[in-house]
């Protein structure tokens, strides 16, 4: 469904990714693991055209998207949840959700505020609160919920578990499994191995902007040496 084909990308003169390739199939959860600064966020941003590619291609649902603008990529069905969450702080929770709303593209049942709140009950009572006043965990849930309102068929989550209490991480894991159950493709960027491997089918390790390992989550668990080498465990 999402195919990243040997992309190179970076910020101005600073190159970060060097010929990175990844595949993500529908209904599959994959995780990109790697140390701080390895290029995980840059990979997700490259998919969203938030950093320019210097070479390589990105395909989504049979269409080439690496020449598209960010908003066109989002409308094609890729949802993105930024590492810094980037909720709109001055908008209320409901307004944040409304800003993310886009009509469904046919597959699965469309997301609505009611359905979101049924899935994430914590957001229920917060509707009129200014999003900037929410706690970190609440902001993370809101960021995911806002992206879901766009009815994506593939969602990119950048370190969603970062800085969250274990109980909240647990809820997040349930959420990711639910999305997978809906047939959605999920691409995670993570440093939290435990959370990542608990929800993922496949795992990729990147280091200095290149792929070092690609396989199933189970294979990675069996290779303790890999984790030691690339993940600073």
């Amino acid at each position: 469904m999402l195919s990243i084909r040997s992309i190179s990308a970076g910020y101005g003169p600073a190159r970060v990714l060097f010929g990175l390739s990844l595949e993500l199939r529908a209904g599959e959860v994959s995780v990109i693991l790697g140390r701080n600064g390895a290029g995980k966020s840059t990979t997700l941003k490259a998919v969203m055209a938030m950093v320019p590619l210097s070479s390589g291609q990105i395909w989504f649902s049979g269409k080439r998207i690496d020449r598209c603008a960010t908003w066109e990529i989002a409308r094609a069905g890729i949802g993105y949840v930024a590492e810094e969450r980037r909720i709109f702080p001055d908008l209320s929770v409901l307004e944040n959700l409304e800003a993310g709303r886009r009509s469904a593209r046919g597959h699965g049942s469309p997301w609505s505020v009611e359905r979101i709140i049924a899935l994430l009950p914590a957001l229920g009572p917060l509707g009129r609160r200014r999003a900037g006043t929410l706690s970190g965990g609440e902001q993370q849930m809101l960021a995911v919920a806002r992206t879901l309102m766009g009815n994506p068929s593939c969602i990119l989550l950048d370190e969603p578990s970062e800085g969250l209490a274990p109980a909240v991480v647990e809820r997040l894991a349930t959420l990711v499994r639910t999305l997978r159950g809906e047939g959605m493709a999920v691409l995670l960027a993570e440093q939290n191995m435990r959370f990542a491997l608990a929800v993922s089918d496949n795992a990729h390790i990147i280091e200095k902007g290149g792929l070092r390992f690609s396989g199933t989550a189970r294979q990675l668990q069996e290779h303790a040496d890999l984790s030691a080498e690339y993940l600073a465990l």
Partner: peptide, 18 residues
Amino acid sequence: LLIRAATQDREMAAALGI
């Protein structure tokens, strides 16, 4: 609403398909 959202974070607004 979209104007206010994009005023606060225009890149993120684009990532939501605006």
